[in-house]
Simulated scan of single mutants.
Amino acid sequence: MTTMIATLAAAFLLVQTIPNQIDVGEANWNNYPRLVTENLAVPNGAMVTRVQRMMQNGECSFEGQRPRRFSIDVNYAVMLDSRGNATRIVVEDVGCRPLELMVGRIAADIVREGYVRVTPPAEPAYYANRINFNLS
């Protein structure tokens, strides 16, 4: 029983943590090192469909973009601590809160599921990436 508890405690320590709050803001996203991740299907078809519905329902609009044909880039940055935990997530302000929150949740899931392939920094540091939602 003690061995099982120790094993569960060790496994719990390996789970990456993420912040509860997702911030939205502006930054020079190219100034941050790239958040390298496993080769993931992000965005997947369901994510693209959600963006399409946001546009169809009038929740979001983007200049030059239509619900049946769009290409929308959304940058995000994750602050990693020395253990590889995300202590802050910042998503680019694209003027569409539902999409910004969706990107924040995607970023949080990437960290939580252990898909980040960046060596944890000695001091907390931001790493950035971008998601392109497109339908053509």
Rank of each mutant, 00 (worst) to 15 (best):
M1I: 12
T2I: 12
I5L: 10
A6K: 14
T7C: 09
L8Y: 13
L8I: 07
L13R: 13
L14Y: 02
L14R: 14
Q16Y: 09
I18H: 06
Q21K: 14
Q21D: 15
I22N: 07
I22C: 09
D23C: 03
V24D: 03
V24W: 04
N28K: 14
N30C: 05
N31G: 06
N31C: 03
N31H: 07
Y32R: 11
Y32E: 08
P33V: 03
V36Y: 11
T37D: 00
P43Y: 00
T49V: 11
R50P: 00
M54Q: 13
M55R: 04
N57Y: 06
G58K: 02
E59C: 07
F62C: 05
F62V: 04
E63H: 12
G64A: 09
G64T: 12
P67Q: 07
R69W: 14
R69Y: 13
S71G: 12
S71N: 13
I72G: 01
A77G: 08
A77E: 03
V78A: 01
M79T: 13
M79S: 10
D81A: 00
S82V: 04
S82N: 15
R83G: 01
N85F: 08
I89G: 08
I89A: 02
V91C: 01
E92V: 07
E92G: 05
E92T: 09
D93E: 05
V94Y: 13
G95L: 05
C96P: 04
C96K: 00
R97G: 01
E100I: 03
M102F: 07
V103D: 01
I106R: 09
I106D: 02
I106T: 14
A107L: 04
A108G: 15
A108N: 10
D109K: 11
R112A: 12
E113F: 14
G114Q: 07
Y115T: 06
V116K: 02
V118D: 05
V118M: 04
T119M: 14
T119W: 08
P120G: 09
P120V: 10
P121D: 01
A125F: 04
Y126S: 08
R130W: 07
R130E: 11
N134S: 15
L135D: 02
S136R: 05
